[in-house]
């Protein structure tokens, strides 16, 4: 946050740099079951983000000392391709990716019935192929589709969504310029049915009113994104049922 610039992020008509209204999402496309070998997979295009998620498991957790006697462990790995950003990113996990993998694992575990699969591991791989701000929330949205595709029992299908502040205006779903030159970013993951918050981070500078407005904005948008997730799952599974007839 907070790189200084003269770029005007909100124009005189109150529109954003990409023409969106403050509470408008970028275009989102979702597809389920895109990888052959994975137990579950999904692809999400969200603005300029292109993100794949794959699920392997539940399978025996390895190394053995990682096993939990009464539940499955959830291991998410968030990874950015070297070519996904302007300046080449060195391959392999950096400190940011390690932190994100941790909070994403925790958020996903909150909806999975882990107690059904003791001593196993559920591995979730999130690959950011092209990054355009909001990769962690788009990645979570893809991961939750991939978990559903893998048939892993969950109490809700988690949705990622971010809001923030640019040019003193609270806005939904920051793009790259807004993320670089904006004033605050609030990534969240929400359970759409109960509205519980499974992931919450924030950086920048906001008043209490701005922050709560941003959170409400992201929670409302989560409902819309959830509908898209349901549609994406239907597109795959309704088709498969037809084929069997």
């Amino acid at each position: 946050m907070g790189m200084k610039s003269d770029i005007k992020l909100i124009d005189d008509n109150g529109l954003r740099i990409d023409g969106r209204l403050p509470n408008q999402l970028r275009p989102i496309k979702m597809e389920v079951g895109i990888l052959k070998r994975a137990d579950g997979s999904a692809f999400v295009e969200w603005g300029g983000n292109k993100i794949m998620a794959a699920v392997y498991g539940p399978h025996e957790a390895y190394p053995k000392h990682m096993q939990e006697a009464d539940k499955a462990i959830v291991r998410a790995r968030y990874s950015m391709a070297p070519f996904s950003v302007d300046e080449r990113k060195r391959p392999g996990p950096d400190r940011r990716a390690i932190e994100l993998s941790k909070v994403i694992s925790e958020a996903l575990e909150s909806v999975i019935f882990v107690e059904k699969y003791p001593r196993t591991s559920i591995d979730v791989y999130i690959e950011v192929l092209q990054a355009d701000a909001g990769t962690r929330v788009a990645g979570i949205t893809a991961a939750s589709l991939a978990l559903a595709d893998a048939g892993i029992p969950m109490k809700d299908m988690i949705v990622g969504c971010a809001a923030g502040k640019v040019d003193d205006v609270v806005v939904l779903d920051l793009n790259k310029e807004e993320d670089n030159f904006g004033q605050a970013d609030v990534p969240m993951a929400i359970m759409p049915r109960t509205k519980e918050i499974a992931l919450l981070q924030m950086d920048g500078d906001m008043t209490y009113e701005e922050l709560t407005t941003a959170m409400e904005m992201a929670m409302d948008a989560a409902q819309k994104i959830h509908e898209m997730q349901v549609e994406a799952l239907k597109r795959k599974y309704v088709k498969e049922v037809d084929k069997n007839e």
Binding site: V103, E106, E109, S110, V186, M191, T194, K195, E196, I197, A198, L199, L200, Q201, M202, D203, G204, D205, M206, T207, Y208, L211, M215, E216, M219
Partner: peptide, 22 residues
Amino acid sequence: SEEGHINAMQKGLCGTFTYEEV
């Protein structure tokens, strides 16, 4: 901050918070 602004948040662990709790 001393001005009563929020600068950072981090949620952790596998449970959840409601909006009111936050």
